[in-house]
Amino acid sequence: MIGYNSIQVSEQKMSASNFIQFKQVSRWFESASGRFDALKNIDLHIEQGKHVAIVGKSGSGKSTLLNMLTGIDHPSQGTVRINSTDVHTLNESSLAGWRGKNVGIVFQFFQLIPTLTIAENILLAMDFVNVIPGRERTNRAGALLAQVGILQHANKLPAALSGGEQQRAAIARALANDPPILVADEPTGNLDSNTTDIILNLFSELVKTGKTVIVVTHEKVSTTEYDRIITLKDGAIIDDTSRNGSQP
């Protein structure tokens, strides 16, 4: 049984140095006006347990890269391997199961189900994937809400919470099945500066537990906040800097 004051982190069999690997990944789209290259020959590896920012302006390829990482979309060419799984080869049914166990996604606009309480939103995520034993789910939902600081709102509907509280609820839901990877797409874009600090501090604490946290943002960030900053422009990586100032 998982207590309210501690979250158990599952042991994962993984290669720490090549936990996430992109090899010559390109993604293009055909249209009446010709081919649009959203990603161009991306070579990338991300270590386990790192706090990584993927930055760039609108249209730089951030969302497409995110879709490759989460298996929402497939590359036109190249390979995507995450924790020894060739994600680009999985069919839709296999992808759904893989994603539920391996990747938690935090969206900019929360995407909580409005007719369910905050706790029920988290329980539904566990019910869908079915990796947490049924007898532990209610207790785990409470533990996650306590971890993000909103346990007192467990039985409220999302509309009763502030934007920052809804985002914390969305983070708790993303962690429901103890995935090794947490991906956040513009998670602070609609939040004030104080709430932004709370969310970013929460991500930093999750990294300390062994999670790999990847934040996609158009905002300016620094290596005091992240272990690594990957900058995209026109579908290509133009800068990749780690906290010590070196190039990975």
Rank of each mutant, 00 (worst) to 15 (best):
N102R: 08
N121F: 03
V103Y: 00
Q111K: 15
Q108T: 09
L95T: 12
W98I: 09
I118L: 04
L116V: 12
A96L: 10
N102C: 06
F109S: 13
I105T: 13
L124W: 14
E120S: 10
L95W: 11
L95Q: 15
W98Y: 13
I113W: 07
L112W: 08
N102Q: 09
G104M: 03
L112P: 11
G100E: 00
V106P: 12
P114W: 02
L123F: 03
S93M: 09
A96R: 07
F107C: 11
L116D: 04
A96D: 12
E120H: 08
I118K: 10
I113R: 06
I122L: 10
V103R: 06
S94H: 10
V106E: 01
T115S: 15
G97E: 05
L116E: 08
Q111I: 04
F107N: 04
L95R: 12
N102S: 03
A96N: 12
N121T: 02
S94D: 15
F110G: 01
F107Y: 12
R99W: 03
P114S: 06
T115H: 12
L123D: 09
G100T: 05
L112G: 08
W98A: 04
N102Y: 01
Q108L: 11
A125P: 02
I118E: 11
A96Y: 02
N121Y: 02
L112T: 03
